[in-house]
């Protein structure tokens, strides 16, 4: 019983982290059909920038904000200079964003070196809630709350505001959206930077529990992709459910079948896609 509850909690908190990372990626996919291999780099660089803020004695909240804003700007730059023109060319997008991912990986190595770091978290978030024999680290509860807050805000923006309606229209049919006078290019740029912003938030938050280290970018990237494909591109609900599924499958897979853990993660994904090629909540 304790095993199941603890593992479920770990899975959910990892899923929450994945949601922060993949929520924006899903919108980017849904809106622009851009395969963004740089998304993992945004996560890693966000963590590094946040770390630098903490080294300068900045508070944790400022680390998250500065990390996210810097990365959002980098994302806007990359999108404007290159990706904007590669609409509909999957191969071009994959290779260009992969090129950036390699460059960012190397720059990270040049600037921050090859050592792994852990971002020190505030006193308030340390320790654990105790419930009988079980411990729930406060920091993991905090991640779940952050992800919940982001999900609610995103949902409100998408469903209850004019900008959100424009975004949904762009996801549904970019050509028609352009036809009724929506500035699809501007909306796309905003969504791309929002995705980069959230990935960096995930990077700083993850820095406090799995750490920031070279290679984290390509380690987390497939997870983000899998969340998006399983949930369906461009669907917020899909991203939430996909993140939870991946988080739980990953945790239980590693705990129950350590030898086959990645198989237990990726094989069900492939099975879902075999039945529904556009993901659980995606539309073609």
């Amino acid at each position: 019983m304790e095993f199941w509850v603890t593992q479920a909690f770990n899975g959910i908190s990892y899923g929450a982290l994945l949601f922060l990372l993949a929520g924006g990626l899903s919108l980017i996919f849904g809106m622009m059909r851009i395969v963004n291999m740089t998304h993992g780099s945004y996560y890693l660089l966000g963590g590094y920038v946040g770390l630098t803020v903490i080294w300068q004695n900045g508070p944790f909240v400022l680390a998250i904000l500065v990390g996210a804003l810097v990365i959002a700007l980098i994302g806007v730059g990359e999108w404007n200079a290159f990706l904007k023109r590669l609409g509909g060319q999957e191969l071009g997008q994959v290779l260009t964003t992969m090129g950036f991912a390699l460059i960012f990986q190397d720059l990270g190595l040049v600037i921050w070196g090859g050592d792994p770091y852990t971002i020190p978290t505030p006193q308030v978030l340390s320790g654990a809630f105790e419930l009988g024999q079980m411990f729930f680290p406060v920091y993991r509860v905090f991640i779940v709350l952050v992800a919940l807050a982001v999900a609610v805000v995103l949902w409100l923006v998408l469903e209850r505001t004019r900008v959100g309606a424009m975004m949904r229209a762009t996801v549904d049919d970019a050509e028609m959206a352009r036809g009724v006078g929506i500035n699809v290019t501007l909306i796309s740029m905003c969504v791309f930077s929002l995705g980069a912003f959230l990935a960096a938030v995930a990077g700083v938050v993850a820095g406090g529990f799995v750490g920031v280290y070279p290679g984290a970018d390509f380690e987390i990237l497939p997870y983000a992709f899998v969340v998006v494909i399983v949930g369906g591109m461009g669907s917020l609900k899909g991203a939430v459910i996909g993140s939870l599924m991946v988080g739980l499958l990953d945790n239980f897979g590693k705990a129950l079948f350590p030898e086959l853990s990645y198989f237990t993660l990726f094989a069900p994904m492939a099975a879902i896609l075999a039945v529904r090629p556009t993901g659980l909540f995606g539309r073609a």
Binding site: F29, R33, V35, E90, V94, P222, F225, V226, V228, I229, M233, L260, S261, Y262, F263, L265, F266, A267, M269, A270, L273, P277, T278
Partner: peptide, 19 residues
Amino acid sequence: ATGVYFLMITLALGMVVWG
């Protein structure tokens, strides 16, 4: 699938073998 979906599905399948 085709296009982006084909990319993503082959990615997941490649990860199965890597895993």
